[in-house]
Structure formats: C-alpha cells, structure tokens
C-alpha cells in the first residue's frame, strides 16, 4: 500500500487515475481504515485529500452554503452560522460515531462510503444538496441522492472525487431536522433515519418540502410522496400523518441483525412524524 497526501485536487485525481491497482480516497479514515484492518479492502494506493484547501472549507455561496467534502462533522457543528441554517444536517453529522469520530469523519466520506444507514445522507437528501464532482474529464454536478447505488457502490467513475456539497438558498421560514432510531443513545448504526426539510409561506402554508429516508433500502431514498403530503398544507396533524404513512410506504427494508423489516417500516413513519414536527417548530421560530 502506498500513501499519498497531495495538496491539489488535480494531483489527487492524477494519482488516482494513474493507479492500475486498487485506489481509495482517504478522508477521515473512520470507515476506510476499519475496512483495511478487516481485510474488506486491500488498496494499493491511498490518497489523503485532507491537504486540499478547496475540500476543507465552509463558505456562503449564492445565499446558500458550500461545504468541502473533507470538512469534518465537528467542524460543521462548530460553524454557528451553518448550523443555524441547517440544524438537521448537523444533527445527522453529530450522530456519526463518537466525538472522537466526529473529529475525523468527513461529510464526503460519510456519503461516499455508500452505507444506506449513513446518518448525514437523509438530511442532505432532504436539504436538496448538489454535489460537485471532479475527475480526469473535468467537473460535473449530481444530486446527492443519485450518488449511491447500493451498499459500497457509488456512481463515481475512476479517479473521480466528490469535492463539495452545495446547500441551496431558501426562504426565511424554513428549517430541517434529522432523527434516527438506535438501540443505544450513541455509538450505533441507524435502524432507520429520517431527514425532513421544509419551507413555509408567510401564512404558514408549506411551500416546499423534502424527505430523506435512510437504512430501509439498498441506499438512502428521497421520498417524494412524503414531501407531497406536506406541500400546500398548513402542516397540520393530518398532513403530518399522511406524510408519515407515505414514508413508511416508501420503506423497503430487510431483516438483519440491526432490525426487522416490520419494525423498520413502522419506525420510518414514527420518525418522519417526529422529525417533521421538529423541523416545523424550528421553521416557525426562524
């Protein structure tokens, strides 16, 4: 195994492109190093992208935000303005492992590890995040929900790197929330995770909503039916119940060591209802 820590994106892409064996991008390492140790992957090249400035910054952009893929969970949670704008996304990153893990784990790594249970992903799907991807053939953009294909499998081509995450601008009366269910309070993998983002008109009518759902399918899902159940309503109990039912209906889980199919379907609705309630409360306070 070779370790490289280039200081430019172009150098990183070139290294990945020139490697004929197995190459992996190293961000926080909190998934990759575990996988190397467990013999799940045996890379010939590891490219550490934490020295690339563009990937390490949080900045305001066009009324929204741009977050570099190598920004850690701790850095996102310590960024007061970003956290105020996207509290649900920060809730998601705050649940990735321990505080030690959050010192290292990056938002890009959490996405590109392609676990259906990744905690930051449902909230980012709900947020409507657009990825910027760079590779040997230049840059392209992709909706966050379109990156992952299956556990461990992304839509990235050889030598492509997710560079940054664009969080869109939105109205003043808007917010988001993320909830997950785990048997323990911390240090656990989501049995179900739900992110809800919504935006209200001045009269309290829901103008826009998105719902992201994790750990109930081969990848985290955008649940459009759930969002539609909120849009145009006053986000009253009936609308939230309809939204919760749509979320449960979208869940396509399996039985595994972390939960049963039946349980996950039920909990998807419970968490959707609760997350929507929190997002609504936050939006109204904005």
């Amino acid at each position: 195994m070779r370790y490289e820590a280039p200081e430019s994106l172009d150098a990183a892409i070139a290294l990945l492109n020139e490697e004929s064996g197995t190459a992996r991008v190293l961000a926080g390492g909190t998934d990759l190093i575990v996988q190397i140790r467990a013999d799940m992957v045996d890379p010939d090249l590891v490219v550490d992208i934490k020295k690339i400035d563009e990937m390490r910054t949080i900045s305001e952009e066009n009324g929204g935000w741009r977050v570099g893929a190598a920004v850690t969970g701790a850095e996102m949670n310590e960024h007061a303005a970003f956290k105020a704008a996207w509290p649900g996304v920060c809730e998601g990153t705050d649940l990735i492992g321990s505080t030690q893990i959050q010192s290292r784990a990056t938002i890009g790594g959490n996405l590109c590890n392609a676990s259906p249970a990744a905690d930051s992903v449902p909230a980012m799907i709900a947020a409507g995040v657009t990825l910027t991807i760079a590779g040997p053939n230049g840059r392209r953009e992709l909706a966050v929900e379109d990156l992952n294909q299956a556990p461990g499998k992304t839509a990235l081509e050889k030598a492509e790197i997710v560079v940054s995450f664009a969080f869109p601008a939105r109205g003043a009366v808007a917010s988001d929330a993320y909830l997950r269910l785990t048997p323990r309070t911390e240090m656990d993998i989501a049995v179900v995770g739900v992110g809800v983002s919504l935006e209200l008109d001045g009269d309290g009518t829901c103008r826009a909503a998105r719902v992201g759902l994790g750990a109930v399918a081969i990848k985290a899902l955008l649940v459009d039916e759930a969002a539609q159940a909120l849009i145009g309503t006053k986000v009253d109990a009936a609308a939230i119940d309809a939204m919760a039912a749509a979320t449960s209906a979208a869940a396509k889980p399996i039985d595994d060591k972390r939960g049963t199919k039946e349980y996950r379907i039920k909990i998807a609705g419970v968490l959707a209802k609760r997350a929507a309630g929190i997002a609504l409360e936050r939006a109204r306070q904005n």
Binding site: P183, R184, T185, E186, M187, D188, I189, K257
Partner: peptide
C-alpha cells in the same frame, strides 16, 4: 465488535 455488540455507553 463493539458497534453491534452494544454494551451501555455513558449517555444511556
């Protein structure tokens, strides 16, 4: 592993 064999953590 200690991720899926869940011994209590302080916040529990």
């Amino acid at each position: 592993n200690f991720l899926d064999y869940r011994i209590p953590v302080a916040s529990d």
